[in-house]
Design a protein around this nucleic acid. Structure first.
Length: 586
RNA sequence: GCGCCCGUAGCUCAGCUGGAUAGAGCAUUCGCCUUCUAAGCGAACGGUCGCAGGUUCGAGUCCUGCCGGGCGCGCCA
C-alpha cells in the first residue's frame, strides 16, 4: 500500500514537472512516513516542504498543486494539507481493512518482499575459533546474524549463511598441545599445564577420548617433553615464547601423523560441539568454510602474488608488508612473517576475495565490537584488489552483559569458567535467549537480565508476545467447544464491522508489517521486529480485554476472528524471523 | 595520544534513514477476574534528549568542539 501511494504522489510531481509547473531539477524521491498522530492520516509526506525552496514556491501552495493533480482515488478517503505544508493521506476504510484478507491468504508469506530481487548476499557470522565451546558473547552474534539472514531472505535477497572456520594457525596448535598435555596428565605423567593453554574442562574430555583410544601408548616422559624448553610465565618466562617452543617440541615428539591426529581430534570435537550448540539454538548454516582450505588451494599465496604484482608489498625486517596505509588504513600490515608463515590477515584477504569471486553482490560480516580496528585493513585490501569496499558491510555487535539477581555475572576466559552459550540456553531456554539477544540495536551494549528472561510474566517480552499468539489459538478452541464454526469469508465480507479504536489500531499495525520487513532488512536491524511484535501483542491484549470476540452476531464474530487470526499470523511470522517459537498453548 | 561505538524519564531502551505536542517497558501509586488463559488490561506519576555552538522553514536525528562511558590500536587469531 505504501509503495502504491508513493507512486501516486511521485507521478503527480512528474506530471507537474511535465506541465511546466515545477522546474525539472526538483524531481526528488517521495518518501512517506507513518505519522505519530492518527489525525494526521495513515501516511504523510513532507515533499512539498522539501521542494518549496528549489521550486521557489510556498510549501502549502505547492502541496495544494500536488493534491489537485492526484484527484480522486478509490484507495484514498481524503487528503489534507496541514501545518506548514504536510500532505496527509487518509486511506479509505476498505483499503485499510483489506490487509486482513491479504494476511489470511498469504499466511506465512505475508510480509515477504521482492525488494532484494534475488540478489546474492552472504552473511558470515559467529566464526568463533574452534578452540572451545561458544560462550555467551558469541550468542549475540549468532542470534543477530541468524535473524538478519532471515530478514534479508524475507526481503527478497538470496541469502548464504556462512561460518568461517579458523582451522589453521597458532590457536589451533595451542588447542592440540592443550589436549596433549591433559592426555599426558591422564597417563599419570607429572607435567605442568602451560599458562597459555586452554584450561576448560572440555580439553580433559578430549584427552580422555584420546586415552580411551590409544591408552598410554602415545605418552612420553617429562624429561623428553620439557628438556631445554624456555621458562613458562610462572617461572618468570614469557608464556607466548614457551607455548611456541612447546608446540614445536610436541610436533617433534609425536611426528607428523600423530600430531595431526591430536590436532584433528581437538578441531573436530570442538566443531561438532559448536555445530550442535548452534543447531539447538536454531541457527543453521549453508556453509562451513575452512580457512585451511584457502592455503591448501594456494589461495593465500596467490593473493600475495597479486598484491606483489600490483607493487603493493615490500620487505622490512625480514617480513612482507602490505601497503594498506595507502588505502585508508592507519599503518601498513604484515602478510608474511619473518619465519615465512603467512598471517591471519593474509588468509582473511584471500577469504574475502574468494567471497566476491563466488558471486556475492554484497557481503556482510558480523563481528564483535572489539574487532572494529580490523575493518580498515580488510577494506584496504579489497580496494587494493579492485573490489569496491561498499560491497562489504562489517556490522559490529556490542557486548552483552549478563545480570543475575541484579548482579553482573563475571566471565573469564582465562580461568576457563566462562558462561557458555549452552549453559545460557539451558537456563533461560532458546526462545528467551534468541529474543533477548536481538531486542536491542546491535550497536547498543546489551544488559541481559537472566531472571527476567526466565520469568513467566508480562514483564518478559517473549512470553508477552507468545501469549498473544497462544490466546488466539485458545479463542479458536473455545469457539469449537461452543459448537461454533468460523467462516472466514463471512468475516472478510463484514470487515466494516471492525470499528472500535482498538480494532483500527490493530489493522494499522498489521498494515505496517511489510514496510517494517523492508526497513529492518535495509537497516540490518532485527530489533525493529522485536519492538514491533511487542507493540502488536500489546494492541491485541488491549483489544482482548476490551471486547468479546465470540459474540452472537455471526458477521461481527467472524470479522473479529479474522482479525484475531491475522494478528496471530503476523506474530507467528515475526517470531519466526527471530528464531522464536509461536506456541498454541502456554 | 589516535581511531570506532554509545550518552533520551529513577532503571532498561525505542524514536521509521531531518518533520507536526519526544514514546514504550520496568519501578512507584490507584483501579479491573461468576464473562474467550489475570502469563492479561486501564489510569496516574515521571524529560534542560550529556554540554556549547553551527547548518535550515524545521534538529533527539546532520556538522564542529568539549565532558562522560565502552572498545581497539601485535610479525595473535
Amino acid at each position: 500500500m505504501k509503495n502504491e501511494i508513493e507512486f501516486l504522489i511521485q507521478s503527480a510531481i512528474i506530471s507537474l514537472v511535465n506541465a511546466g509547473a515545477l522546474p525539472e531539477e526538483v524531481a526528488a524521491e517521495v518518501t512517506l512516513s507513518r505519522p505519530r498522530e492518527a489525525k494526521h492520516g495513515d501516511y504523510a509526506t513532507s515533499i512539498a516542504l522539501q521542494l518549496a525552496k528549489p521550486a521557489r514556491r510556498k510549501p502549502r501552495e505547492l502541496a495544494e498543486a500536488i493534491v489537485a493533480v492526484i484527484g480522486e482515488d478509490a484507495r484514498i478517503e481524503r487528503i489534507e494539507i496541514a501545518g506548514p505544508g504536510f500532505i496527509n493521506i487518509h486511506l479509505s476504510p476498505a483499503a485499510r481493512q483489506a490487509v486482513i484478507g491479504e494476511i489470511l491468504a498469504a499466511a506465512e508469506n505475508y510480509g515477504r518482499s521482492r525488494l532484494g530481487a534475488g540478489r546474492k548476499v552472504q552473511v558470515e557470522f559467529v566464526s568463533a575459533n574452534p578452540t572451545g565451546p561458544l560462550h555467551v558473547g558469541h550468542g549475540r552474534g549468532a542470534a543477530y546474524g541468524a535473524a538478519l539472514a532471515e530478514l534479508l531472505a524475507a526481503a527478497g535477497f538470496s541469502v548464504h549463511r556462512e561460518y568461517y572456520v579458523n582451522d589453521a594457525g597458532r590457536q589451533m596448535d595451542i588447542l592440540a598441545v592443550s589436549v596433549w598435555m591433559r592426555y599426558l596428565q591422564r597417563c599419570g605423567i607429572d607435567v605442568p599445564f602451560p599458562a597459555n593453554a586452554y584450561k576448560g574442562d572440555y580439553v580433559r574430555e578430549y584427552a580422555e577420548r584420546l586415552y580411551t583410544q590409544e591408552g598410554d601408548g602415545w605418552a612420553v616422559s617429562r624429561q623428553q617433553l620439557l628438556d631445554n624448553l624456555p621458562p613458562d610465565a610462572p617461572e618468570g618466562g614469557d608464556k607466548e615464547t614457551y607455548i611456541d617452543a612447546l608446540i614445536a617440541r610436541v610436533r617433534e615428539l609425536l611426528g607428523d601423523n600423530r600430531y595431526r591426529f591430536v590436532f584433528e581430534l581437538g578441531l573436530n570435537l570442538t566443531l561438532d560441539d559448536i555445530r550442535d550448540d548452534l543447531a539447538a539454538f536454531g541457527v543453521e548454516y549453508d556453509e562451513w568454510f575452512s580457512e585451511r582450505s584457502l592455503t591448501e588451494r594456494g589461495r593465500v599465496n596467490k593473493v600475495i602474488e597479486q598484491l606483489r604484482d600490483a607493487n603493493l608489498l615490500y620487505e622490512k625486517n625480514g617480513a612482507l608488508w602490505f601497503r594498506s596505509s595507502e588505502f585508508g588504513d592507519e599503518k601498513d600490515r604484515v602478510v608474511q612473517r619473518d619465519n615465512g608463515q603467512t598471517t591471519y590477515f593474509a588468509s582473511d584477504i584471500a577469504y574475502h576475495l574468494d567471497k566476491f569471486e563466488r558471486g556475492f553482490e554484497r557481503v556482510i560480516d558480523i563481528w564483535g565490537a572489539d574487532h572494529h580496528g580490523y575493518i580498515p585493513r580488510v577494506m584496504a585490501a579489497l580496494t587494493a584488489l579492485g573490489i569496491e569496499a561498499e560491497r562489504l558491510d562489517v556490522l559490529l555487535v556490542q557486548f552483552a552483559i549478563l545480570y543475575r539477581g541484579g548482579e553482573r555475572v563475571q566471565m573469564s576466559t582465562r580461568s576457563g569458567s566462562f558462561v557458555t552459550l549452552r549453559e545460557l540456553r539451558e537456563e533461560v531456554g532458546k526462545d528467551a535467549a534468541r529474543f533477548f539477544y536481538v531486542m536491542r540495536a546491535a550497536s547498543q551494549h546489551l544488559d541481559f537480565d537472566l531472571d527476567l528472561a526466565k520469568s513467566q510474566s508480562a514483564d518478559n517480552p517473549v512470553y508477552y508476545i507468545q501469549y498473544a499468539h497462544a490466546r488466539v489459538a485458545s479463542v479458536m478452541r473455545q469457539l469449537a467447544e461452543r459448537g461454533l464454526a468460523h467462516d472466514r469469508a463471512r468475516g472478510l465480507a463484514h470487515l466494516d464491522r471492525l470499528t472500535s479504536t482498538h480494532e483500527q489500531a490493530l489493522i494499522n499495525l498489521l498494515g505496517r508489517y511489510p514496510e517494517l520487513i523492508e526497513s529492518a532488512a535495509l537497516a540490518a536491524e532485527p530489533h525493529q521486529i522485536a519492538q514491533y511484535l511487542r507493540e502488536l501483542a500489546q494492541g491485541f491484549h488491549t483489544w482482548y480485554n476490551a471486547e468479546q470476540f465470540i459474540v452472537e452476531d455471526a458477521e461481527l464474530r467472524d470479522a473479529r476472528l479474522d482479525l484475531c487470526l491475522a494478528v496471530q499470523q503476523v506474530i507467528c511470522n515475526g517470531l519466526h524471523l527471530l528464531g522464536v517459537s509461536a506456541p498454541e498453548t502456554m
